[in-house]
Design a protein around this nucleic acid. Structure first.
Lengths: 130, 130
DNA sequence: CTACGACCTGTAGCGGCTACAGGTGCAAGG
DNA sequence: CCTTGCACCTGTAGCCGCTACAGGTCGTAG
């Protein structure tokens, strides 16, 4: 392509799939790029940066709506960004606590399970409310 | 109702919503119960126990397909149950590690954020690849 | 000029529910 | 007996963040 990145190139650079890039465009997270004569999308450096921003936000566990808000704050707006970050930290910690609870409960329930045991499986007994 | 629990009663006892009970029936996780003359579902004790089994499995983080397998193993089958438990423990730990990674990264990125700061927000800088 | 891959649009599916809309059953109070 | 009002019924669509097609078109290297 004369100038601009194809969707494949920008997706590879952003570490996401081509379908994901199109999806982000569909939901308005990435702006619709100009097209080649034949209708292929042509991205610029700014788009690649924006996609990177999204990917980084995802890696921090932000939802796409929150990333949309963060993108709007990109110039200044640290106060609101900080608020979003605090909420996101709290959400991550809630999820972690829930997983830890599950892990402890499951480890406890499965303790004493063995392949040779035919009946009275501790895990199945727990699930049955025993 | 003469004999049997209404869907509302069985849902309350199982700690899930009425819609969830109907959903479980639709996907074949709960058997279709007999109906009253007017078409209302009438559940027995066995159904309530089965619903409890499912809820307990969900509380341990199992997916509905895995719970379906566990239900089939209910009489004996400790060996396979143990295998499922081990896989589920590993899955919980993977998710926890991912959340921990996000938490550390986010806490680092948001450190130094403050409401008064107008530009150069550490979090936004991180997201922009700074 | 042909072959082949990368691209295009549109739609449906995943898991595990949740939320309607628009209708019917049931039980209790008057 | 009749009304009220809640609980129930079916069916469908939506949530999130993709992913996976089908069936076609474009771009480029040989």
């Amino acid at each position: 392509m004369r100038d601009g990145l194809t969707i494949g190139a920008v997706a590879r650079r952003g570490g996401v799939s081509v379908e994901t890039v199109r999806y982000y465009e569909r939901i308005g997270l990435l702006p619709p790029p100009p097209r080649s004569a034949g209708g292929h999308r042509l991205y610029g450096e700014e788009d690649a940066r924006r996609l990177d921003f999204v990917r980084r936000g995802r890696a921090l566990g932000f939802g796409l709506e929150e990333i949309r808000r963060l993108l709007r704050l990109e110039a200044g707006g640290c106060g609101e960004a900080q608020l979003l970050a605090r909420e996101q930290l709290a959400s991550l910690r809630r999820k972690m606590a829930e997983l830890r609870r599950m892990e402890r409960a499951l480890a406890g329930a499965a303790a004493g399970c063995s392949a040779s045991r035919a009946a009275g499986c501790p895990l199945l007994r727990t699930l049955s409310g025993g």
